[in-house]
């Protein structure tokens, strides 16, 4: 049979394809049929948070940081509750990472604060002696791209029915609503308001100036994102 195939490239290719596609068929296809199911308490990203997430991706923080707490005593002691599938329902793309040169950040919002991040991102070894994380001074100067995040929000709302402007249950029984503005101007204004809250805890003069001028520096969006990782 194999000799026969080896003389017939077309059938050979078909045979190879069937053999390699088989696993995907069984492992992946069943999952295509299911939408991701959010766990109670999961909520979509606000415009500012999503902007921060794009900054995180842009700087490839995921090259050094995971966002996946495995169910081991040592990891839950260090980082908090192990990760659950439904917590990632609004993560496009997922950011689990595959290398922990730095610590996991899945729940970093629980144990680090705005001012700490501000100091740390500006100069990690000064805050954590021995740190090999690079400094990120340019994040304090670059203006964040709110528009792209807003476009992404519109798309996921439309295509994947991500529940913006909808009351969502939380773990303690209360409700939250993540707002999504109707217009680009509205979204920018909302993000700026959120940014002011974050920047109020910051000392950097460039950041204060930018916020006063109505701009959101990348660092503010990034910290908004880090703070919400819980």
């Amino acid at each position: 049979m194999f000799h026969w195939l080896e003389k017939r490239p077309f059938f050979f290719a078909v045979a190879v394809f069937v053999v390699i596609a088989f696993a995907g068929l069984i492992e992946i296809l069943p999952n295509f049929a299911q939408a991701s199911r959010p766990i109670i308490g999961a909520k979509p990203y606000s415009t500012l948070e999503l902007t921060g997430r794009l900054v995180y991706i842009k700087n490839n923080c995921n090259a050094c940081h995971s966002q996946l707490i495995r169910p081991f005593k040592s990891e839950t002691d260090r980082y908090g509750h192990y990760s659950m599938s439904g917590e990632y329902a609004y993560d496009r793309p997922f950011l689990w990472g595959s290398k922990r040169t730095g610590p996991d950040l899945m729940r970093v919002g629980n144990y680090r604060t705005t001012d700490w991040h501000e100091n740390h991102m500006m100069n990690p070894p000064e805050v954590v002696p021995g740190s090999i994380m690079p400094q990120y001074p340019w994040l304090f100067k670059n203006v964040a791209d709110l528009d792209t995040a807003y476009a992404e929000q519109l798309v996921i709302q439309k295509v994947f029915a991500v529940p913006y402007n909808t009351e969502l249950p939380t773990a303690d029984g209360s409700k939250v609503t993540v707002k999504l503005a109707d217009t680009l101007e509205g979204a920018r204004a909302e993000a700026l308001e959120d940014a002011k809250v974050v920047a109020a805890d910051m000392k950097n003069q460039d950041v204060k100036d930018a916020i006063a001028a109505g701009n959101v520096p990348e660092i503010v969006a990034l910290i908004a994102y880090l703070n919400r990782l819980k």
Binding site: Q34, S36, Y88, D91, R92, P93, F94, D147, A151
Partner: peptide, 16 residues
């Protein structure tokens, strides 16, 4: 709106 080259994954979280 936004960057012309930006895209968002068809899959979320664990599926992704």
């Amino acid at each position: 709106i936004g960057n012309w080259y930006h895209s968002v994954s068809m899959y979320a979280g664990t599926n992704d």
